[in-house]
Each structure stands twice: as structure tokens, then as C-alpha cells.
Nucleic acid binder design. Structure first.
Lengths: 151, 151
DNA sequence: ATAAAGTCTATAATCTTGGTAGTCTTTATG
DNA sequence: CATAAAGACTACCAAGATTATAGACTTTAT
């Protein structure tokens, strides 16, 4: 049940881009290098990840001098589930319980397969969290922990 | 977030072994071949899986003619979480939120890392299901679905 | 014109997955 | 006690995924 480095780096980068821009009200724009340095990641690897997120419509970019990446939508409209699926594929532990990309698994009768029933619960539990947590929610939560360390 | 074949086959086998023995009150005993045939799995691959579960104390076996595998404990005392961890390792998506096998991840401050906070929720959601579902629960659920198909 | 930045494709080095194969040990039983 | 059935154990392997690295190309500000 592991999150790949690809997924991890992508989520970290998106969270970084969701932080409010230091000055001005324009959406936060950052360069690959900037994010890579800040998160301690290979810039070339991150490049591929951001490109995938861009092609999926979650990021926009500006080329050329002074360019960079920025969120394609307000941070409240981008969920971790969307990001995760682009980078790591379906959330479901087994294909036969996937909502977004179902495929039958081997069992003779899916309706009464005990494993499938439980894995369906697992997939729902994960999806509920990831699909109902936006980047804005993450930022909010980070800030509230920073203000109130004990909790 | 995928369940490996190793994990899948192991869970299926354990569920099969948790089914009440056809006759008598002794714990259900089955041979590798028997389970492999029933689940459509390579017997040699299943062998390794069952061996791991045995070495982890979840299964007992009887060698020699008429031997086989059987649950080491009543099916109500073996959880899917125990089985999963033996075969697929920690439940947590990132090591830094693992309860059973913690390791620090890269972030500068773990306490305020947004990704870590969310992944902690995910790990708890998964663990809550797997650690509170016993093999007996799975059998019960299978039977109730069989009796009452619509739900 | 130039340099800074993203785009795109290919390749490489591990690691993981999903097995297969073979030998050894134990045990029931004829 | 010979034999065959069964698990125990170890080694190995092919294919694919993962985690990058490299380099050539395109766009754009100045």
C-alpha cells in the first residue's frame, strides 16, 4: 500500500504551489528548480512529474525566461485524489473494486467474494479521504498545526 | 495503492482455510494443491506464501502423507491486517506514518508536513478496516451476501 | 542574439513481482 | 523398512516497474 516517489514528489510540489504567493494576489508561480531545491528532489525527475500533471490539466506553465508552473485552478478545486490518480493510477487495491478503472479479477463470483467486499471498503475509505481533501485543505491544516503545535 | 498477487493469494487462501470444515468440528485442513486448484493459483507460488504465513505464526501445518495447512488460531482471532503485513509489509503509504515500522521521511519538519498529515489519515483508515476485520468476519459477510443477494 | 526556462524522448540502473525448479525432511502406511 | 505423499527450504530467473539521468528541441523576455 505504498505511495511511489513519483506520487510523493508530485503531491509535495502541488502543495508547495498551493501556498499563497508571498506578495500579490496572482496564483503562486514557481520554477522546477525552485521546487526541486526546496523539496530536495532531482530537478529532472520532478520535471517529468510536473509535465504529467500539466498534461492532465492540473497545472499550467509559462515557457521562456521568467517562466514557471502554477495551479490550473484554485487550490480549493484540486483534490489530492486527482493528483494521485495522475501519478500513481487507481486508488483501489484490486482492479475489481475500482470505480474509475474497473477490471474483473479472477474470483468465480464477484458478488460474494469476501476479499472483494473488504477491499471495496478499503478503496472507499482511501478515496473518501483523497477525493475530499483539496490542496487548500492541506494548507489550512498545515497552518493550524503550526499555530497550535500540540494538536 | 495496490495489493500484490502475493497478498491477494495469501488472503484468499486464509479465507478458504477459515471456512468451516465440511464434517466434524476439527479446524479445516487443506493441502497446498487443493487451495491452489480451487483459487486457480500456481501451487509452487502459493507454497512460498503459506510458508511465510506459517513462519509468522498464523498457520500450522502437518507434514507427510495426509498433511496440510490449517489456521493456527480460531478464525475470529486472525485479522486481515496481520496477514497483509506478513505478505505485503506495512499498511502505511509512507514510512513516516507507519505505526508498526516507522522511518523518517525527507520533510524538514514532520509535525507540520501537510502530506504526512493526510497520509496519516489514510494509513489509519486502512488499518482500522484491516485490523478490525477477522477471517470470521469475512466468512460471516460472505454468507450474509449469499443469503441476501440485493444487499 | 542570447540565455533562461519549459517540452519531449530515450536510456540506464536498480528493485520488485510473480513466478519455476530442485533438493531435503517428515510422516503414514503397506 | 520401503515408498510415496506431503510440506520446508533455497536458489534462481524473466519481465516489468521505479527512479532516475541525459540531451536535444522550443518558446520567450530582454
Amino acid at each position: 500500500m505504498r505511495l511511489s516517489k513519483r506520487g510523493e514528489y508530485g503531491l509535495r510540489a502541488m502543495i508547495a504551489l498551493a501556498e499563497p504567493a508571498p506578495k500579490g494576489d496572482a496564483p503562486q508561480m514557481m520554477q522546477i528548480k525552485e521546487i526541486a531545491l526546496r523539496e530536495g528532489i532531482s530537478a529532472k525527475f520532478l520535471e517529468q512529474i510536473l509535465l504529467a500533471l500539466k498534461n492532465a490539466g492540473l497545472l499550467h506553465s509559462k515557457m521562456g525566461v521568467g517562466g514557471g508552473y502554477y495551479l490550473a485552478k484554485p487550490s480549493s478545486e484540486i483534490t489530492l485524489g486527482q493528483i494521485f490518480r495522475v501519478l500513481d493510477g487507481p486508488v483501489a487495491p484490486v482492479k475489481c473494486v475500482s470505480q474509475m478503472s474497473y477490471e474483473p479479477c479472477g474470483c468465480p463470483d464477484e458478488a460474494t467474494c469476501g476479499l472483494r467486499l473488504v477491499m471495496g471498503d478499503v478503496r472507499n475509505a482511501i478515496a473518501n479521504i483523497l477525493d475530499h481533501t483539496s490542496l487548500a485543505d492541506v494548507i489550512k491544516r498545515q497552518n493550524s498545526v503550526r499555530k497550535n503545535p500540540g494538536m
